[in-house]
C-alpha cells in the first residue's frame, strides 16, 4: 500500500498542475486574444461606453402583476424568470441567488397560477393601449380561455430553464407587435422590421429554434425613439 502512495501523490500533483492550472490558463489566454468580447460575457455598451447588458443574458421587461403592466406596454416582454429576488438575477451574492428555473412540476397548482397571472398581465398591457384578445364572434362562449381570439405563444407564459433566457420565439414577438406599435405610436410594419433584424434563424437551417433577442430589440426601439424625438 505505501509503495503506491508516492506515485499516487506525485501523479496527482503533476496532473493537477496540468489540468487545473496550465490548461485553463492556456484556454483563457487564447480566448482573451481571439474572442475578447465573447470570452468576457458579450457585454453591450452604450455610446458613452457604459455597460448596459449582456447580449446573451435576458433582462426583465414584463411582469406578472396586471397593475404594473400598463407602464411596461411599450417594451417587448421576454420569458418569465424564476430567479430571486427579482426576475433575471444573474448573480446576487447577498442573497446567494443566481440562475434558476422554477422547478415546478407539471401538476403543481403554483405552475398554473403563475401562468394565469402572466396571462392576465399580458392582457392588461394590451388593454392599456386598446387591444382586446377576446373573440367577438357570436359563437364564442365559455371560459375566458375558450373565448380568446389569439392563442398566447407558450414561451411568453412559461418560465425559462435559466431564468436568464435572452430570447423569445418569433411568434411571441409577433404577438406583441400590435401593442408595441400602439404604445410607441409606430406602424406595425416598422416594429416588425426591427423584430426581423433581431431575429436569429436556426443554425445551418436545422439546429435549435428561431429566436428573437429581447434585450437588443428593446434597446433598438429606445434608440429609434431617441433619434426621432423632437429636440
Amino acid at each position: 500500500m505505501l509503495t503506491q502512495l508516492r506515485p499516487a501523490l506525485v501523479l496527482f500533483t503533476i496532473l493537477s498542475v496540468i489540468t487545473g492550472v496550465i490548461y485553463p490558463l492556456a484556454i483563457t489566454g487564447i480566448a482573451q486574444v481571439a474572442f475578447q468580447g465573447k470570452a468576457n460575457g458579450s457585454i453591450l455598451a452604450d455610446t458613452a461606453g457604459k455597460p448596459i447588458g449582456s447580449a446573451l443574458v435576458g433582462q426583465e421587461f414584463g411582469t406578472s402583476d396586471p397593475a404594473a403592466a400598463p407602464a411596461l406596454a411599450k417594451w417587448f416582454w421576454g420569458r418569465p424568470s424564476a430567479t430571486g429576488p427579482v426576475p433575471c438575477t444573474a448573480l446576487n451574492l447577498d442573497k446567494a441567488t443566481g440562475s434558476s428555473g422554477s422547478n415546478l412540476g407539471p401538476t403543481n397548482p403554483a405552475l398554473l397560477d403563475n401562468i394565469k397571472a402572466r396571462l392576465a398581465a399580458l392582457d392588461a398591457a394590451d388593454a392599456s393601449v386598446g387591444i382586446s384578445r377576446t373573440s367577438t364572434a357570436p359563437g364564442a362562449t365559455g371560459s375566458a380561455a375558450a373565448r380568446r381570439a389569439t392563442a398566447v405563444p407558450i414561451d411568453l407564459v412559461t418560465a425559462s430553464a435559466s431564468g436568464l433566457d435572452p430570447h423569445i420565439s418569433p411568434a411571441a414577438a409577433e404577438y406583441q407587435v400590435p401593442r408595441i406599435a400602439k404604445a410607441r405610436r409606430m406602424t406595425e410594419d416598422a416594429v416588425r422590421d426591427l423584430v426581423r433584424r433581431h431575429t436569429h434563424s436556426r443554425t445551418l437551417g436545422v439546429l435549435g429554434e428561431p429566436v428573437v433577442n429581447v434585450l437588443t430589440l428593446n434597446l433598438a426601439l429606445e434608440q429609434r425613439a431617441a433619434s426621432e424625438s423632437p429636440r
Binding site: L104, P106, A145, T150, A151, T158, S160, S169, E174, E209
Partner: peptide, 23 residues
C-alpha cells in the same frame, strides 16, 4: 389556459412543454 388548440395560433408558434426550457 393559453387556449393553445382551438383559437387561432400562429403557424410557427412553439408547441409543447416549454416550462423550464430555453427558447
Amino acid at each position: 389556459i393559453v387556449a393553445h388548440g382551438d383559437s387561432a395560433s400562429a403557424p410557427d408558434a412553439p408547441a409543447g412543454n416549454l416550462e423550464g426550457k430555453e427558447a
